[in-house]
Write a protein that binds this DNA or RNA. Sequence first.
DNA 1: CCCTGATTCGC
DNA 2: GCGAATCAGG
Length: 191
Amino acid sequence: MSWTDERVEILKKMWGEGQSASQIAKELGGVTRNAVIGKVHRLGLSNRAEKTATTKAPKADAKPKPARKAAEPKAPKPEAEAKPAAAPASKEVVPARRKIIPANQPLPPQPSANEVSPEALASQREVQKKALKLSLMELTERTCKWPFGDPATDDFWFCGLPTEPGKPYCKPCLEVANQSVSMRRDRRRPR
DNA sequence: CCCTGATTCGC
DNA sequence: GCGAATCAGG
């Protein structure tokens, strides 16, 4: 694959939206995240807000392992947050990066696990304690995507535990999902 | 271990 | 210009 205009456009868009390099790579296909990062740097859009701060720290360190490559630039990140502080006290400052992701995240079928066997529910409940309670943006291919709570409220999150290989859910959530689905199929309600 | 971006350098 | 290998960090 080559960097056609279209692909570069997608890259720019997604990178601007705060998507990770690996996500972009998957979206584009045929490239690795390294390729994406490399391209990002070549395009010069690695850091979004860079003023006159090319003051390279005079690092004259002695490399313990000068085997070959190097990577120890303690490049300071002067994120100039120029916000017209209108509000009195705003403790929550939204990071420049990381916007809202469209809706291309894999969403699970239905959380409707109203009538599942108590065992499975208990099992899942127990795991809830350990659940990572991830937000939609934090989901990856290896995090359990079982939703908890009401999407319309703040009390909404995803399990986030490591998924079973090849499955979108972790084991306990998978059990609930399966039972829910089989029950639905059988139209049977094991009280 | 999973992930993130950053950098180098042979191609 | 490209991106794998590598590094550094969360």
